[in-house]
Design a binder for these strands. Structure first.
Length: 752
DNA sequence: GAAAATACTTAGAATTCGTCTG
DNA sequence: CAGACGAATTCTAAGTATTTTC
């Protein structure tokens, strides 16, 4: 991999000009047709015009945008596009795809919830009660929980005092780990063996303790001062808290950006008292250095804590997790994903976000809606507070929600990826993708036909679908202008994001894409397309301004409506899932050999994974220490090479000795030992070389996102079985938990 | 029928953890 | 035995897609 690095930067960052359709509606009535969504936007035209030039300026500043060359996707294309229909996929019905028999759900009617008042161990206790009442889960859950507690206690009794670990101790620890893992496996809820609920119902019983609130702000110590214009200013609690948010970020690039600073200052002033506001009128005159230093010292102090202190902290955290981190969902104790209310701070939008630096306010219980079962023990709000609302909606999966003040969007407390609710959805997602596999040829034929349609809408839809399928682009919903960074997906592409080349680098009909996608990650790619697509693109771009929509007759709603008529459940993003998974499967087939050694097998897996990450444009900023650590590794490799050479010559010497002194058994043994040493050296060297290759290839590519969200885990599980690679070489603990369903149900014969 | 609200998945950055090494 | 480093985990922003509202 690698290839040319591309310079320059993504286009965009330009005010979106009106589409022809919008212009038309403007004609119809000056204020009618294209009314802004938010009535709080008067003078839209004028602000737009100025915004346009401002943004054009900004584009130049936008140097920070991560430049990245998307590896040509072509090599994967062939794979994906030659997917024959003849590969008969298994029957798509995912409910049917089970080994063994379905179990009946244990609880079909809501449970009796004894109304309890407070009680900390409520969840556990209750679970026990239920288990006693329900013999089916007794073995799995009750014992499991009891056992689970035990090792923790032991840990607490023998803290880190065991300094020198003897071999036996290490062994014992390992054994304990294995035992623990087995026990965990034992008590795992095998929901995939149960019947599904009727449509829309997500749970029958749900109980939890409500979200965990961050601690209240405490005033700064007296010796830490904020200065304005060189003079000490004692700020009130509210203003001081916000000042500290800024001070803590002083080392961050954010605080050098004008937008960030202005937004922060505006919102900070809102938190000030009248006197403070009168006094503090210029951010440049503010001196946060003492606050900043205090913060840094605190961080240092935390790092320097003794083991005992760290342990105390850890245990305190554990307690919070135990208490707030779990809920009971239909008889089972499930981990919650984000049970902590997001603490207040300064909004960190990605890229050129117009709202970066704004104050993200503290959430009070009065802002929070609780969702749980009516008969469950309703969570208590913190003392002296009340919830905004308590509702009992079992058609949704969230436990609590609140509205965030910066964007006005809703935030939810939901379950961990290892939970049934998330797992089931995930499984279903891959089943839809597999269904797409069985009919993708037909769909491809159809959109190729549609490209010739007389209807402009149909043509645009066909070309957009071609991109989504071929390049794994995201759908591209419309976004509210000025509220977020200027990013696009397929349907929201603008003329300025494409450059057409009749001939480029010996290829006909090349489209050069350059735009910012989700999270302001740049998508840059030069793709040869069919003549028909190329001609259509020319047509779509004719008589349009750079800022106009490429697909002016199309949006994601229309596209998805069409897709779901082709196959129920089909939407634009299914193509991404499907193409990612099929690419992994195909790459694994091509790259890996049973005869390879374990390190090589893993390298192949990572390469297949990487092919997908490249396809999906999953990037990362190369770690700051990348070059350094690469050099380190290289010098290690060099060192090992020398060692190997040395070992080899020693071996030679030893062999000579043996020849000279006939067969002295002692010398024979020496030879054997030297042989082993050489072998060991070779192995280690090889391992490190593979590691170096892998790391280099991963420099700016992030594998995690595709592994977690796009690759059917059953492909990986089956591969592990076929290649005799232990699963934990490719999935860490939380990945194994998330994909427990796949691990359990997949055999070596699985085909996506 | 468009806009807004809602619910949920996907995403990279930031932080924390654990272990290896000098 | 600290401290460097990579892996794992946490955090929350930013998408997609559907439903509700006007």
């Amino acid at each position: 991999m690698g290839g040319e690095k591309n310079v320059g930067q993504a286009k965009g960052g330009k005010a979106k000009a009106k589409t022809p359709r919008q212009r038309l509606s403007d004609k119809e009535g000056s204020s009618g047709g294209d009314a802004p969504r938010k009535s709080t936007k008067p003078n839209k035209e004028r602000t737009k015009a100025t915004a346009k030039s401002q943004r054009a300026e900004k584009v130049k500043v936008q140097k920070k945008v991560k430049a990245f060359k998307t590896e040509s996707v072509e090599s994967f294309d062939d794979v994906r596009f030659n997917l024959a229909v003849k590969e008969e996929p298994e029957d798509g019905d995912f409910a049917q795809e089970k080994r063994g028999k379905k179990r009946k759900r244990p609880e079909d009617e809501p449970m009796e919830g004894p109304s309890c008042s407070s009680a900390t161990p409520m969840l556990n206790r209750k679970l026990k009660e239920k288990d006693e009442a329900d013999p089916r889960t007794e073995k799995n859950t009750k014992e499991g929980i009891k056992k689970e507690k035990k090792p923790k206690k032991e840990e607490a009794e023998h803290p880190v005092t065991t300094k020198k670990k003897s071999k036996e101790e290490i062994e014992a620890a390992k054994a304990l780990k294995i035992k623990k893992r087995e026990e965990e496996e034992q008590q795992r809820w095998r929901w995939w063996e149960e019947d599904k609920y009727e449509d829309g119902v997500k749970w029958k019983f749900l109980e939890h303790r409500g979200p965990f609130f961050p601690p209240e702000y405490q005033h700064l110590p007296d010796n830490v001062n904020f200065y304005y214009n060189g003079k000490v200013v004692k700020l009130g609690l509210a203003a001081e808290e916000v000042a500290l948010f800024f001070a803590q970020m002083l080392d961050h690039e954010y605080t050098t950006k004008d937008v960030f600073r202005n937004n922060f200052f505006k919102d900070w002033r809102k938190e000030m008292t009248l006197e403070e506001r009168v006094l503090i009128s210029d951010l440049n005159k503010c001196d946060f250095r003492e606050l900043h230093n205090m913060h840094k010292e605190k961080v240092e102090a935390r790092k320097a804590m003794s083991k005992e202190e760290k342990l105390v902290m850890k245990e305190a955290n554990q307690k919070i997790v135990e208490e707030y981190g779990f809920c009971i969902l239909d008889h089972h104790r499930e981990r919650i994903g984000n049970f902590k209310i997001e603490p207040p701070g300064l909004f960190r939008g990605r890229g050129e976000h117009p709202k970066q630096g704004m104050l993200k306010k503290r959430i009070q219980p009065e802002d929070v809606i609780i969702n749980c079962e009516k008969k469950s023990c309703i969570p208590e709000p913190p003392a002296g507070h009340h919830w905004k609302e308590v509702r009992h909606d079992n058609t949704v999966t969230w436990l609590a929600s609140w509205t965030e003040n910066v964007q006005g969007s809703c935030k939810y407390v939901m379950l961990n990826p290892s939970s049934k609710l998330k797992g089931e959805k995930d499984w279903e997602k891959y089943e839809v993708a597999r269904r797409l596999k069985s009919c993708v040829n037909g769909i491809r034929q159809q959109y190729q036909q549609d490209i010739k349609s007389k209807q402009m809408e149909t043509r645009q839809r066909a070309v957009a679908l071609y991109f989504i399928d071929k390049l794994a682009l995201r759908a591209g919903n419309e976004k509210e202008e000025g509220e977020t960074a200027d990013t696009v997906g397929c349907c929201s592409l603008r003329v300025e994001h494409l450059t057409l080349h009749d001939l480029l680098e010996d290829k006909d009909c090349v489209v050069e894409f350059d735009f910012l996608g989700k999270d302001c990650i740049r998508y840059y790619n030069k793709v040869p397309v069919t003549k028909r697509v190329f001609k259509n693109l020319k047509l779509f771009m004719k008589n349009k301004e750079p800022g106009d929509d490429l697909f002016d007759r199309l949006n994601t709603c229309l596209l998805n409506k069409h897709l779901s008529s082709l196959l129920p459940g089909l939407t634009a993003k299914v193509f991404r899932t499907f193409n990612a998974s099929i690419t992994l499967q195909e790459q694994l087939r091509q790259l890996s050999n049973m005869t390879d050694n374990p390190a090589e097998k893993l390298l192949s897996y990572n390469r297949a994974n990487r092919a997908v990450a490249v396809l999906c444009n999953h990037q990362r900023v190369p770690p700051k220490t990348f070059d350094q650590s690469m050099a380190n590794l290289q010098s290690k490799i060099d060192g090992r090479r020398e060692q190997l050479a040395l070992a080899k010559s020693e071996l030679k010497l030893a062999k000579k000795e043996v020849q000279a002194h006939s067969s002295d058994s002692k010398l024979q043994a020496v030879v054997e030992r030297k042989k082993k040493a050489v072998q060991r050296c070779e192995e280690q060297l090889m391992k490190m070389e593979v590691q170096a290759t892998n790391r280099e290839e991963n420099k700016q590519i992030a594998l995690g996102t595709s592994k977690l969200n796009y690759l059917d885990p059953r492909i990986s599980v089956a591969w592990c079985k076929n290649m005799e690679v232990p699963l934990d070489k490719i999935y860490n603990k939380s990945q194994r938990d998330k994909f427990a369903w796949a691990v359990d149900m997949t055999g070596a014969d699985f085909i996506f």
